[in-house]
Each structure stands twice: as structure tokens, then as C-alpha cells.
């Protein structure tokens, strides 16, 4: 068991900083309210380092303090990668061995989302974080439909292309748009394909929780910091397990 606290400048000091705005004019009441909030959040003692009015009815506060909470790292659950991270050449070799043809990936931003930054970072040859995108992989055929694609359109194109995987990125999260759209995506593919035959559904975006894949009806969710290599490695793993071939998923 490993118990930890935040670190300011001394092990175990538990120091955190917190900023927020209260809907109160800046006065002694607002400052007291800020401290009370901090204490209720487990900061004890809490120090109001800064407070200033934002317009006549709001106060911006910065609080420093020591939190009383402890975290047991053994109780932390994460979605661990259950497959090896492969280099592009290994990905190409595995696809060739498993499929004896190119892997077809259809990508899009669905619904009202016009932010193609995420899907482009994964698919465009340009890539991200120093890694080339999936277009760079010789054994992957990429069809990038771009922004604001209707789910039906995406299903049709996936069928026409005989897609092995469908990649969707969602940046806009206002009113849970990303969750609503992902559920609609899963439902549409389930309806359009015979049971168990639909392409792998992979969804990504900065505000997703990777543990929600099953709940949203997709195979995998990728959150902030995902690189093309992560996605390519996962796709290889997915085909291998789907075919009962465990070599790539070892």
C-alpha cells in the first residue's frame, strides 16, 4: 500500500492551489466564503492568497492550503494498455500477416462537431507528437471524411469501404454532445451490421473518460495525449483478438 499526498516543497505537506470565482461582490463575506469552501473541500489550513473583483457581482479567488486527503495508489484504477505498443513497421507486418490485405480505417468528426484537429492528428500523414499519422502506414488505407459528418453517412461509407475500423473524434462537449453523439454512433452501427460483424468503433477526444467505452457501446476510447501509434497498435491488437490470434496481443 502506498499512501500519498500532494507535494508542495516538503514530502507529505499536502499543498494544493485552487482558483475559482464566487458570485459575490468582493468584500469580507466573499473572502470568508472562499475560505469556508476551501475547508469543506479538505484544505486545512487554507490561505486566501488572492481575491479580486470581476465586475460588480463576482470575486475571483486563489487559495493555497494543505489537503487532509490521502490517496492509496493501489486503489487507483486506470485503463492499462493490454497490448504491446508497436512501431509502424511492426504494425504493417502484423496487418499483412493477419489480414493479407490493407486495413481499412474510416475516420470522421460526427454530429455538429467541426473540430477536426483530433482526427487529423491521428489520421493525417502529418501526425502529432512527432509520430506520423495512420496515412503514413503502408498497410492502412485511410478514408478521412472530415468534419460534421452525419452518422448515417458514416455508416454508409464504412460499409462501402468495407471498413475494419471506424475512428471518430469529438472535441465539443457542451451539453454532453460528445457522449450523445457516441451513443448514436454505436446504435447506428449495431443496427446496420449483423451481430458481431460491425467494424471496430474507436472514439477519441480530450474530454473523454477512457473507462466509458462499454457504457457508450464502443470498443475503445482514447483520451488526451493519444498518438497515432497508440491507435495503430490497438487496431492490430483488436484484429488479432477478433481472429483468435494471440500473437500480436501477447
Amino acid at each position: 500500500m502506498t499512501l500519498i499526498r500532494p507535494y508542495g516543497d516538503t514530502t507529505g505537506d499536502g499543498m494544493v492551489q485552487l482558483s475559482f470565482t464566487l458570485p459575490l461582490p468582493h468584500d469580507r463575506v466573499a473572502e470568508g466564503a472562499a475560505l469556508q469552501l476551501a475547508r469543506r473541500m479538505g484544505m486545512e489550513p487554507a490561505m486566501l492568497a488572492h481575491a479580486r473583483p470581476v465586475g460588480p457581482a463576482h470575486t475571483f479567488c486563489v487559495v493555497y492550503g494543505s489537503v487532509t486527503h490521502l490517496v492509496d495508489t493501489e486503489s487507483v484504477t486506470v485503463v492499462a494498455r493490454d497490448h504491446p505498443l508497436l512501431a509502424p513497421a511492426e504494425v504493417n507486418a502484423e496487418i499483412k500477416r493477419l489480414l493479407r490485405r490493407r486495413l481499412v480505417v474510416v475516420g470522421a468528426c460526427i454530429g455538429t462537431d467541426a473540430h477536426t484537429v483530433g482526427i487529423d492528428a491521428i489520421l493525417n500523414i502529418k501526425g502529432c507528437a512527432g509520430e506520423k499519422g495512420l496515412e503514413y502506414y503502408r498497410e492502412i488505407k485511410v478514408v478521412n471524411l472530415g468534419a460534421q459528418v452525419a452518422v448515417d453517412q458514416l455508416v454508409d461509407r464504412a460499409r462501402a469501404e468495407e471498413a475494419d475500423a471506424v475512428l471518430v473524434s469529438q472535441v465539443v462537449t457542451q451539453r454532453d454532445a460528445h457522449l450523445i453523439n457516441t451513443r448514436a454512433l454505436a446504435a447506428a452501427f449495431e443496427a446496420a451490421y449483423p451481430p458481431g460483424r460491425r467494424p471496430a468503433l474507436v472514439v477519441g477526444g480530450p474530454r473523454f473518460d477512457e473507462a466509458m467505452a462499454a457504457e457508450l457501446g464502443v470498443d475503445r476510447i482514447f483520451a488526451r495525449g493519444t498518438t497515432p501509434g497508440d491507435v495503430a497498435s490497438y487496431l492490430v491488437h483488436r484484429i488479432a483478438t477478433a481472429r483468435g490470434d494471440i500473437r500480436a496481443s501477447a
Binding site: G55, H58, F60
Partner: peptide, 13 residues
């Protein structure tokens, strides 16, 4: 930017 749509305090800062 890239985290949330701007808050009141973000705009002020």
C-alpha cells in the same frame, strides 16, 4: 484554450 469554453475569470485574466 483547449480546456473549457472561457469562464468569467478566464476572460478577466
Amino acid at each position: 484554450e483547449a480546456v473549457v469554453t472561457p469562464w468569467l475569470s478566464d476572460r478577466d485574466l
